[in-house]
């Protein structure tokens, strides 16, 4: 199992200096094993700080981070172990590639886990497959590849540690639409076949709406909303007040509603909206 529980988490940066800033304020959150969660929030809402607590890169100022009921900061060994169980992919991860070949870069994490050569090889191939990195690239230098390929290699490097929980910070930022679609498909496939937890940090509402089972909305260092996409997107006004977008379909539905068209509130995908509109027009099932 891999249940994550955050208990009254607080994090203050630069404590005791004029730059003191409370990034997280009393955040409590349960993420049971196997969920696909999207964390949403405006820049500076605390979502990046939050995810760095999940694998112990940041230590809470107060409160606790529990993994399967045990405090991850209980010992040095536990803290080291948690790095491999909660895989964290940072924003623009392609900038962290450093090895001479793609293979060796993906193998960096597994090697740090202290695995044997053959186990490392297994892990690397698995990670590469999940991230959509073709084995023909293994002997190339990561620096020669395109931005999209580099991104996948970096993600493969984390997937290759076979973590129970995969956390991705804005994995699609800067990719073109085709690249986004392909990567999201890979992540979904990873979630489906590993049954692991996936936590996706994004500010793209359409992505959150179409990918995740559960949405957690952060605002000013606290959890503002938590629920299914249908629940969250039925509150467009609140989302807007937190400086967030709403999915395009929700915006369109809202605009139509304001013009007197009767449409339910919980619309968040174009497909659903189209279906509703058609049945309204008496055209029956599409």
């Amino acid at each position: 199992m891999a249940d994550i529980r955050l208990e009254s988490l607080r994090h203050v940066y630069s404590r005791g200096t004029p730059f003191e800033k409370t990034a997280l304020d009393d955040v409590s959150l349960d993420i049971p094993s196997g969920q696909y969660v999207a964390i949403l929030g405006h820049t500076g809402s605390g979502k990046s700080t939050l995810i760095q607590h999940l694998n112990g890169l940041l230590a809470p100022t107060s409160g606790r981070v529990l993994f399967d009921g045990e405090d991850i900061h209980r010992s040095k060994e536990a803290l080291r172990d948690i790095r491999f169980r909660v895989g964290l992919v940072f924003q623009y991860p392609e900038y962290q590639l450093f090895e001479e070949t793609v293979y060796r870069d993906i193998a960096f994490g597994p090697k740090n886990m202290g695995l044997s050569e053959s186990e490392i090889d297994e892990h690397v191939r698995l990670g590469a497959r999940f991230a959509g990195v073709d084995e023909s690239l293994f002997s190339l230098s990561p620096l020669e590849l395109s931005g999209g390929q580099k991104r996948r290699i970096a993600i493969a490097g984390v997937m290759a540690m076979e973590p129970d929980v995969l956390v991705l910070d804005e994995p699609i930022a800067g990719l073109d639409p085709a690249g986004c679609r392909a990567l999201l498909k890979n992540i979904k496939e990873y979630h489906r076949s590993t049954h692991g937890t996936v936590i996706l940090v994004t500010h793209d509402m359409d992505v959150a709406a179409s990918e995740a089972q559960r949405l957690v909305v952060m605002n000013k260092g606290a959890v503002a909303l938590d629920g299914t996409p249908a629940e969250i997107f039925s509150r467009p006004t609140e989302l807007r007040s937190m400086g967030l977008d709403i999915p395009d379909a929700t915006a369109l539905a809202q605009a139509l509603r304001e013009r007197g068209v009767e449409i339910p509130e919980s619309i968040y995908t174009p497909r659903f909206l189209a279906g509703v509109l058609l049945s309204r027009n008496g055209e029956g099932p599409c």
């Binding site: 890169l57 790095r83 964290l88 992919v89 962290q96 994490g109 740090n112 540690m161």
Partner: peptide, 16 residues
């Protein structure tokens, strides 16, 4: 800032 980020990213992959 960049050094900070890269350090965190490598620590996340178990760098010591």
């Amino acid at each position: 800032e960049e050094t900070d980020k890269i350090m965190s990213a490598q620590k996340a992959r178990g760098a010591d």
